[in-house]
């Protein structure tokens, strides 16, 4: 079971990393944001799976923090960008 969970985690991670390729290429800034987004949720998924596989309870907290900060970062950034650019 643990092996399978880790395999799943690896696959998700691989998928997310492949998505990063898009971020490499662009072309639009939007694509890059998407890639980061994908990496974030992929990372969270992988973390949850790893937590279950290894029984390290604290890892779920890492995922929680990532999720929270991912949400925070995207919101805060848009709002700040708006505010700072003078609108």
């Amino acid at each position: 079971m643990a092996e399978a969970l880790l395999l799943a985690a690896g696959l998700i991670l691989l998928a997310a990393l492949a998505g990063l390729y898009r971020a490499l290429r662009g072309p639009a800034a939007a694509d890059r944001m998407m890639a980061a987004q994908l990496l974030c949720s992929g990372g969270i998924g992988a973390l949850l799976l790893v937590a279950a596989a290894t029984g390290m309870a604290g890892v779920v907290d890492v995922a929680l923090v990532l999720a929270l900060l991912g949400a925070f970062a995207s919101v805060a950034f848009v709002l700040a960008a708006r505010g700072l650019s003078g609108r």
């Binding site: 639009a28 974030c40 949720s41 949850l48 779920v60 929680l64 999720a67």
Partner: peptide
Amino acid sequence: KLILVWLLVLLAGATATQLIAER
């Protein structure tokens, strides 16, 4: 906690969409 994680990712996704759409 697990459910909270998912909810947060949902929220983040929605926001990102908003941002990207804006852009």
